[in-house]
Amino acid sequence: MYATLIFFAILFLIPVYMVLVTSFKSFSQVSLSTMWNFPTEVTLDAFKEALDKLLPNLLNSFALVVPATVISAMIGSLNGYVLSKWKFRGSNLIFTLMLFGMFIPYQSILIPLVQFLGSVGLYGGIPGLILVHVIYGIPITTLIFRNYYTEVPTEMLEAAAIDGAGFFGQYQHIILPISIPGFVVVIIWQVTQIWNEFLFAVTIVTGADKVPITVALQNLAGSQVVEWNVQMAGAFLTALPTLLVYILLGRYFIRGLLAGSVKG
């Protein structure tokens, strides 16, 4: 049993091994015949070069992820509150119609999206991409918060209502204080998704200095001499923030993962 577990662990870690040994090599050390060997001399050259090339894009990604996540988490929290505690006729249907939006292939809205963003002057930069992620993030954030708030006993809200708290009062005094875990799950989910996203990023943002990190990493692969050590270092840098989130907050990360699949 342990043998099987360890065998799979090794399989899962092979790419990590490859990224690390390659990225700590200098360009002259990267040769195909010694691809699997440890670097004969550990150097940070590749990381320096990758950081040099990708730093602006890393910053772009942060500038994208932070506002997009915060806004979509706030919207999701309010929507989830309404859809779990203030249900009205047709609210379940609206919820289901919303959920459909998180499953569609985004290719099917891409052409109008590009034309729309162009016509309102948001095409080409990070603000447009933020808007896109906020809107297409509504379904999943709403879903997670709605499921979370469904667990909150209605009696608590009723008690608050008797004390005279209205719609926002109940939200502010009852719901919001107990929402921290929900926010953590949603924020982690959105951060990972938006950081890792590629299709919107590659079609909506233009200019080497404006694109987020995923696009820049892909472009790194397409240029001149194939500097595998720099590419691997770039891949490592791209993966690092979400990996850190995963390692530090793994429990919530998994909860977000499962929320995407568990029925609404």
Binding site: A63, V66, P67, I71, G125, P127, L131, K210
Partner: peptide, 17 residues
Amino acid sequence: MVLVLLAVTAVAVSAQD
């Protein structure tokens, strides 16, 4: 609507224009 939504965003993202 977009502009309203982005007013919040604009603070976070330094001027890209």
